[in-house]
């Protein structure tokens, strides 16, 4: 990462995180986990504050009030947030029963690395 810092001013979240995933948290919520390999990567992203309610709402095109939780979870080097579903999981018209494919837009979040 240090080498890259000299050449680049920012990195994509997908390059910095070990795990980026989404999953149901009960029938009415989808929760997103961004987990880092080590403290260094975690602290870099945490301090950058790029993962905030405003940014998430903009990314998914939803109202900020639908983001119900946003927490930094130090023991796991993880940042996680949760959004309210439009309809309960598995209802007619719903496309992702397990909520397991909603995370890819997070890949491109730009994180300043200087």
């Amino acid at each position: 990462m240090n080498n890259m810092r000299t050449r680049r001013k920012e990195m994509r979240l997908v390059e910095l995180a070990k795990t980026i995933r989404s999953k149901n948290a009960g029938p009415d919520r989808i929760t997103f986990d961004i987990i880092f390999q080590d403290k260094e990567h975690y602290e870099l992203v945490k301090k950058s504050q790029v993962i905030n309610k405003q940014q998430i709402a903009k990314l998914f095109g939803i109202d900020e009030s639908r983001i119900t939780d946003l927490v930094e979870f130090d023991p796991a080097n993880a940042i996680k947030f949760t959004i309210a579903r439009r309809h309960p999981s598995g209802s007619p018209g719903e496309s992702d029963t397990f909520g397991s494919q909603q995370y890819p837009p997070l890949y491109n979040i730009k994180v300043p690395i200087q």
């Binding site: 999953k23 149901n24 119900t68 927490v71 979870f73 796991a76």
Partner: peptide
């Protein structure tokens, strides 16, 4: 591991605490 056990605490939950 510390990482695998602690990250499981937040699996499928809105709040890991």
């Amino acid at each position: 591991t510390v990482a695998s056990v602690s990250s499981h605490a937040m699996y499928e939950r809105a709040n890991p605490f």
